[in-house]
Amino acid sequence: MSAAATRTAKKLFIFAIAMFGFGYAMVPLYNVFCDVTGLRLKGKTGEITETVAATVYVDPNRLVTVAFDTNVNSALPWRFKAQQYTMKVHPGVITEAVFVVENNSNATVIGRAVPSVVPTQAALFFNKTECFCFTKQTLTAGERKEIVVRFVVDSKLPKKINTMTLSYTFYEAADSKNVAQSDSNTVKAIDIKS
């Protein structure tokens, strides 16, 4: 093999390793790309403050149905239900929905809820000021808890959308097992951008 061929091969090896790294770089890059181009449209909902929510224009002539869907991952020994399956709300009015979650096991378990909204076009107009999905939820053995979400539907919601569904799935949090052993309830809440 010639020196020139070795040089070519070295460059190509470096290129191959760089492409392996690029595969990993795609994980944050997709998010950056969606934010920069404004293409984010994945059923994710927005988080706003009470003050901002209070400034949203209230449309008294329009009623939108919000349906609630609750799911629990099979690995999590919890029961999770919405108190009301549907609500009729005026866009712009801050509304509170109550959910009930219950730990059926005999150990402390930490769960985390992942939200989504359909139709996806509606997600951009569905904002929450408070949500149990912003933090991890810790339930001791047998504990039953009411958890709330406060939301406001933007009055700019397209006219053709009259019903939207807010769906939550509870999963066992990754650090749940460690906590169950030490049985500590003082888990630092970690915000997940929802």
Binding site: F15, A16, I17, M19, F20, G23
Partner: peptide
């Protein structure tokens, strides 16, 4: 050379998702 390493990266992520948390 450009595409195969990306596949290797994707399946490595599967592996770490399943076994390494």
């Amino acid at each position: 050379i450009a595409a195969m390493p990306v596949l290797a990266g994707a399946v490595t992520m599967l592996l770490t998702d399943k076994y390494f948390g």
